[in-house]
Design a protein around this nucleic acid. Structure first.
Lengths: 136, 136
DNA sequence: CTGGATCCCAATAGATACTG
DNA sequence: CAGTATCTATTGGGATCCAG
């Protein structure tokens, strides 16, 4: 953790919230992979462990980046959906994707995950926002 | 660390390199604050500790995001400058700054650090790139 | 001296087993 | 299903140390 005093730097502020190896992967699942359940996040390719997933979901909810709600179809399940603050992270994720697309020999080639990223960034963002405004 | 197997996801790829609380702060110092020495990074507001700074500089050099060179003015010192791969992280940092500007009550107000960010993103990026191409 | 790195130890993150 | 508990590994703070 950064030294207690909050630093008044916008980069430090952001990194204090999502500057780790897992948080943005959960957002990726939600925003780009249409996942919304704890178990779906658990079984993503990177295999996050249960305590980390629980912790990050809690942080994200506390930061009001995600909203946790009981699943109407199954009272035992919860769904996680992005808030406006969460949707506003789309450009951060897209900037990372573009950087990796340029500098990672593995991801530079077209991949399933990247198909929807062939559109311009603002079209991608608009589509995702539309999806969540329709079903929330 | 993400589970050993590299995941072929561009977001995971990026996060494996700069998904922590310190790496992008060093890049910030270099790209936006004109810092280039170990000691300058050490004394930034967030007070990174010496072992972390040494480790991150090593990682960044190993990833060819920074280039370490002997300082021509002082044989004992080293300077760190961004490579093209490092300059390509400017949009990631700017996306984080924009998100924080919108969602952090502290950084939303204009601040010294943010002055140069009042220009459009591509003008900011162009200016920084120009600065480094002139002096490398 | 002084810039940079290493070492020791505490704190935090993470993997796996287990539980309400 | 969705976590907690426990144990291990990694990160980080601060002192110290080494090279020039």
């Amino acid at each position: 953790m950064l030294n207690k005093h909050s630093t008044h730097c916008p980069i430090a502020f952001g990194l204090n919230i999502f500057g780790d190896r897992w948080t943005l992967l959960i957002l990726r699942d939600i925003l780009f992979q249409d996942k919304k359940y704890y178990n779906e996040f658990l079984h993503s390719e990177e295999e996050i462990s249960t305590n980390i997933l629980a912790d990050r979901l809690e942080q994200l909810e506390a930061q009001r980046i995600l909203k946790k709600s009981p699943d109407p179809l199954n009272r035992k399940r919860f769904t996680y959906a992005p808030t406006t603050k969460g949707l506003d992270l789309i450009p951060v994720i897209l900037a990372i994707v573009r950087w990796s697309g340029k500098h990672d020999p593995e991801t530079a080639a077209p991949r399933p995950f990247l198909r929807k990223l062939e559109k311009p960034a603002n079209a991608i963002e608009r589509d995702i926002r539309r999806k969540f405004s329709l079903r929330t």
